[in-house]
Design a protein around this nucleic acid. Structure first.
Lengths: 207, 207
DNA sequence: TTTGTAAACTGAACGTTGTTTATTGAACGC
DNA sequence: GCGTTCAATAAACAACGTTCAGTTTACAAA
């Protein structure tokens, strides 16, 4: 099946090229600059050709969201440098904020646009593909870390990992997204907000 | 000057009508349904007429943001039912979340779209008009409340009202906005998240 | 090598958008 | 009544996502 295979590869090659170009446009000029005609120009195809590989513009954007979320996952995993669970959570929080500030446009599209995009990132990529989306995997990392924290000290013995992970995440998201959409109104540096936020949370959930 | 006055009134009347209709459309069908032609249809004028009263669509949206922010201010002021500062902060937090869930589209456009919109809400309305925007007034309410809290108990004597208000606000925003854009992924009810969030913050900032 | 078919691809169009502008028409001061 | 001013319109422009009737290409079979 050499021929069908090559055709298939050509197809995924072009799909990847569309995604690569789209990502470049989004990162350099913002999501609104990502138009079908612009992408078509860049890959030197006609606008209609895009629709052979993507159902619509929305699907491209969703895919970019998934890709970006994989990067966030990598950022979070760098929390592994610390061994103490509490310290790890602190590092992860800072990395989360750093991701948001270094990949503003990506963060925007995943967490600050319509819920359809977020759903694509959290749910499974395909219908048949049953593995969790990168968003869910990221969240699971947090839950895992709080479970470890629970076991690390008697003070945290009664902590509900899922609930606390939700609050932890919501708090970080609040700081990160407020910095993005109301930057000039947040006087305190993000790092300070994040650090005190984590500190306060860990102190507050002690039983 | 009866004539000029009447003309002026006609002008502001029509401007208000545009805003009223625009708000109705946004609330009922979402921001994307708010098109110039749609508004023109509704007020029974031609599309071009809108531009006699607004520079562009953006200006209408910004005005809607300002109007929505006034409503948020009202929601927050209902925290006055309590006398204890800590309790007031709890009520205000719940009201904040309630505003976000009852005025999703407004919350979205103010806090989750481009920073230009947010800037319009926080800054002064006009260049010559020096009074603070509704957003700034809302934030000042929080700062005021934390200042009261500081005076209410020795535990809070060293608290920095502005910084803590920023964290408080960021945390609430995180919960509210995450519920809007990733609703199905936040298992815990928003009210619970908000209440524990405030509780944890107040516990954590004690010196 | 030629033919037939299936797929990739294009160019032009459709219906939207926001926005601009030449032109109209009515209301007003004189 | 006359001339001016200004609100309002109709029509257009450019750009958007998307569709589709065709054309071209690439390959299997003959």
């Amino acid at each position: 099946m050499g021929i069908a295979e090559r055709k298939q590869r050509h197809k995924t090659d072009l799909r990847d090229k569309v995604l690569k170009v789209s990502q470049k446009i989004m990162l350099n000029e913002g999501l609104s600059a990502l138009t079908i005609r612009r992408v078509a120009d860049e890959i030197e195809y006609s606008p209609g050709a895009i629709y052979l590989y993507f159902r619509n513009r929305e699907e491209i954007v969703r895919e970019l969201g998934r890709l970006g979320m994989e990067t966030l996952l990598e950022y979070l995993q760098r929390g592994d440098v610390a061994t103490d669970p509490a310290e790890r959570l602190g590092v992860m929080a800072l990395n989360y904020a750093r991701f948001a500030s270094e990949h503003t446009e990506t963060y925007r599209l995943v967490f600050m646009s319509d819920s359809e995009t977020a759903r694509a990132v959290f749910g499974n990529g395909d219908g048949k593909n049953a593995k969790a989306g990168p968003g869910e995997r990221a969240f699971h990392m947090l839950v895992h870390e709080f479970t470890r924290l629970r076991g690390s000290h008697a003070d945290f013995a009664e902590l509900d990992p899922i609930r606390v992970a939700e609050i932890y995440w919501a708090h970080l998201h609040g700081i990160a997204s407020l910095k993005i959409s109301c930057s000039e109104f947040l006087n305190t540096p993000v790092e300070v907000l994040v650090e005190t936020s984590v500190k306060v949370l860990l102190a507050g959930i002690k039983s």
